[in-house]
Amino acid sequence: MTTKTKAKANARRTLALDILNHGALALVALLFLFPFFWMVSNAVRSNAEVLAIPVRILPAVFEWDNFAKAWTTLPFGRFFLNSVIISVSVTVITVLVSCLSGYAFARLKFPGRDKLLMAYLATLMVPGIMLIIPLFLIVNKLGMINTFQGVILPVAFGTFGSFLLRQFFLSIPLELEEAARIDGASRLRILISIIIPLSMPAIGLLSLFTFIAQWNNFLWPLIVMTGADNATLPVGLTLFQTQQTTAWNYIMAGATLSMIPGVILAVVLQKLIYNSISLNAGMGGR
């Protein structure tokens, strides 16, 4: 064999291995996606078919209007709206409050600044589930059980956002801000016109993760929203689970609805997500 044909054979072998490698992982990925498929497949069949033994992979009759029915009759439309109101409100408050406090930590001199920042960091160590009981009692005391403000306010003041934005604000050249002060801008104006527009990547990240965390949050709204009308999507999903005649097909339709925003965000913002996790990987444990 000449070296040329040998090289060719080698190349062909590597290519074959490559294709095999991709194919095998694609198979794993398909298996991994099965629960999503199973959810949708069961959402569009009759409840009798969901419970039929033996199971059918695909419905015999596709009932696409199950989504519309789940949306109005159960009422997942209402739950969806509640989830949107709560997640968006928490996100907006978190971003506003974190911008203000993050800026103060990054750029304003005041006595005790570093100590306060350390205290903020320390609160990040406290696991959320520990605060559930006292938070519930506080919300109860404030008479905000079963209200939107009762669900929203206690989770909208996390310290992580202040810290994240402080770190990002520190990376903006100080001279920009000094130029703005000389141009006659107040601190608030500097924050709004200079710092925030230049911090969109960090603010976007904070918004994304805050929104998703609240969209997926279960225990807190479960405890505070005692009325069925005020349930969020995750809570709503469990409300019908215990009924005698569980409408599994509608619940699967509701589950599908609850996953749509997260799936869209994960796909559309994959680059942002990867970059932010990459940042974590770079700092890994240090």
């Binding site: 999503f36 199973w38 959810m39 997926n216 999507l233 699967m252 609850s258 996953m259 997260g262």
Partner: peptide
């Protein structure tokens, strides 16, 4: 990025 509750319900089925 999907609600843990929805995931658990699908797996329960």
């Amino acid at each position: 990025f999907t609600p843990g509750i929805a995931v658990a319900i699908v797996w329960m089925l």
